[in-house]
Write a protein that binds this DNA or RNA. Structure first.
Length: 350
DNA sequence: AAACCGGGGCA
DNA sequence: TGCCCAGGTTT
């Protein structure tokens, strides 16, 4: 009787899922590609990541060239991908590897964990996939598979130690990188959150929940808190030439990205007069609200009211005029793309 | 231990 | 529209 790992590795080789960061067989994995893809894939789907990965590797073919880029260039290439602290940490880590490691990726947990943006998951993934070391790679896919195979009676994140123990019992003694990737592929394509395709699953013989057709009951879920709503105003300022006043965010949320100036975002909606009093230009006569934009973050829903003035010769320190055709050269979060699109139509070159 | 941090895909 | 997701850092 075949083992779990034999079955899933056979399936993995047969499926031959082609992803741009995956090395083709005789060629060794490129640690730079593995690292870059793993950072991009945090909280982000494969379909979204592919285009960003291709663009990054074309712009910056190796870790040294990425280290030599400016943070603004990196943020611009990252815009739309979300979780922008990943881009800051990516850039910092590239510079550390270029200067402290002579451009060579470290391959031990001790050194990998010292790099910004690399925690236990990413360290394990890099060691397995880039260096074929034995490590226990546990992401959301693997958690879901383990919960179903073993009918785990608790939400997976509540006991990571137990997860490592049961994963160990399924793991092979070689092909560590392929096993890690095969588990994540299985979770992404067969052992999916909804409607898992158990009838064609290569390891359904090993799955205790499938034996009782209880796979839909696993993993056990935690209760989630409801997302609060927040409200703000954005101030659309144009001069005679049609240029737009923009500035760089200093707040921790969306730090380093550009914005159309806005109030803070509060639980209570602003009255228009209060919002204006808190704008950089409280003395000017603003239009009524000319548009509204909704954006959902992980932890709150944001509703923005847009108001507008036409003004030239502003003399503020925290921003600058940007011609409409040059907006594409700056890194805006998707939230601000919605505001710009509302005013100007589709922003080109997004 | 819990809160914080974005966005796109999909039913 | 609501729910899902290839985590790490900060508090």
């Amino acid at each position: 009787m075949s083992s779990f790992s034999t079955k899933i590795l056979d399936w993995y080789h047969h499926a031959q899922r082609k992803l741009p960061w995956r090395a083709k067989d005789p060629i060794k994995p490129n640690p730079y590609h593995v690292w870059l893809s793993e950072i991009m894939l945090q909280q982000t789907t494969v379909a979204t990541v592919i285009a960003y990965f291709l663009n990054f590797t074309e712009k910056w073919p190796d870790v040294n060239s990425l280290a030599n880029a400016s943070i603004d260039e990196v943020l611009h290439a990252w815009q739309g991908l979300g979780y922008y602290s990943r881009a800051h940490n990516l850039h910092k880590t590239a510079q550390i590897i270029a200067t402290d490691y002579n451009g060579i990726f470290p391959n031990t947990e001790e050194f990998l964990l010292q790099l910004p943006g690399i925690g236990p998951y990413t360290s394990a993934a890099i060691r397995a996939i880039a260096f074929n070391q034995k490590s226990l790679v546990i992401d959301g896919n693997v958690e879901r598979i383990l919960a179903r195979v073993f009918r785990l009676p608790f939400p997976p994140k509540d006991d990571m130690k137990q997860l490592r123990i049961v994963l160990e019992t399924l793991s092979p003694n070689d092909k560590f990188g392929e096993f890690a990737q095969s588990m994540m592929d299985l979770g992404a394509t067969i052992c999916t959150p909804k409607n898992p395709k158990c009838d064609i699953c290569p390891v359904n013989n090993f799955c205790e929940s499938y034996k009782n057709l209880t796979q839909h009951l696993y993993p056990i879920e935690k209760l989630k808190a409801k997302r609060p709503q927040k409200f703000g105003f954005v101030f659309w300022v144009e001069n005679d030439k049609g240029d737009i006043w923009i500035r760089k965010r200093e707040n921790r949320l969306l730090k380093g990205l550009m914005e159309i100036p806005s109030t803070s975002w509060e639980i209570e909606n602003w009255k228009k007069e209060e919002a204006i009093a808190n704008s950089p230009w409280p003395e000017h006569s603003w239009t009524n609200v000319i548009g509204q934009v909704k954006h959902v973050f992980t932890h709150f829903e944001l509703y923005l009211n847009i108001i507008k003035i036409k003004k030239s010769g502003l003399d503020l320190e925290d921003g600058f005029w940007c011609a409409q055709k040059d907006l594409k050269d700056h890194a805006f979060p998707t939230l601000m793309h919605k505001v710009i699109n509302h005013q100007l139509g589709t922003l080109k070159n997004k």
